[in-house]
Amino acid sequence: MTGFAVIVERGSDGGYGAWSPDLPGCVAAADSYDECVALMREAIPLHLESLRRHGDPVPEPSTVGVLTIDAA
């Protein structure tokens, strides 16, 4: 798997929040799932650009797979 994993969660208010385990501080929030994902697609390149501009290390994606497991 290449690229950064993004976790999207539904909030108690019905909105959505997203974050990436490899990119602390890179987050998005929106009223809909699709909007939240779109915002993360914009946020990740901006976050990486900011890291480079400030001379901070740019992490390599560490995710090797994504699973969703239904609770029984």
Rank of each mutant, 00 (worst) to 15 (best):
T2H: 12
T2V: 11
T2K: 14
T2N: 13
T2S: 13
G3M: 03
A5G: 11
A5N: 09
V6W: 04
V6F: 10
V6R: 02
I7V: 15
I7F: 12
V8I: 15
V8F: 11
V8C: 06
V8P: 02
R10T: 14
R10H: 10
G11C: 11
G11P: 01
G11L: 14
S12R: 15
S12F: 14
S12H: 11
S12E: 15
D13N: 11
G14R: 00
G14W: 01
G15F: 03
G15N: 13
G15Q: 11
Y16P: 00
G17R: 14
G17F: 12
A18D: 03
W19K: 09
S20R: 00
S20C: 08
S20M: 01
S20H: 01
S20Y: 00
D22E: 10
D22L: 04
D22T: 06
D22R: 06
L23I: 02
L23A: 00
P24K: 08
G25C: 06
G25V: 08
G25N: 10
C26L: 10
C26M: 05
V27K: 13
V27M: 15
V27Q: 13
V27W: 06
A28W: 02
A28S: 15
A28G: 06
A30H: 06
A30R: 04
D31M: 11
D31R: 12
S32Q: 02
S32P: 01
S32W: 02
Y33D: 11
Y33C: 08
D34T: 02
D34Q: 03
D34F: 00
E35W: 05
E35K: 08
A38I: 00
A38W: 00
L39H: 07
M40S: 10
M40Q: 07
R41Y: 10
E42S: 11
E42A: 12
A43F: 07
A43E: 13
A43S: 11
I44C: 05
I44A: 04
I44K: 05
L46Y: 08
L46A: 14
H47V: 02
H47R: 05
L48E: 01
E49R: 13
E49M: 07
S50C: 05
L51D: 00
R52H: 03
R52D: 03
R52M: 05
R52G: 04
R52Y: 01
H54T: 13
H54M: 09
H54C: 08
G55A: 03
G55L: 02
G55Q: 01
D56K: 14
P57G: 03
P57S: 03
V58C: 10
V58M: 10
P59Q: 06
P61E: 02
S62P: 05
S62W: 08
S62T: 15
T63P: 00
T63A: 13
V64I: 15
V64P: 01
G65Y: 13
V66I: 15
V66F: 12
V66W: 04
V66C: 09
L67P: 01
I69A: 12
I69K: 11
I69M: 13
D70W: 07
A71N: 15
A71Y: 13
A71D: 14
A72E: 15
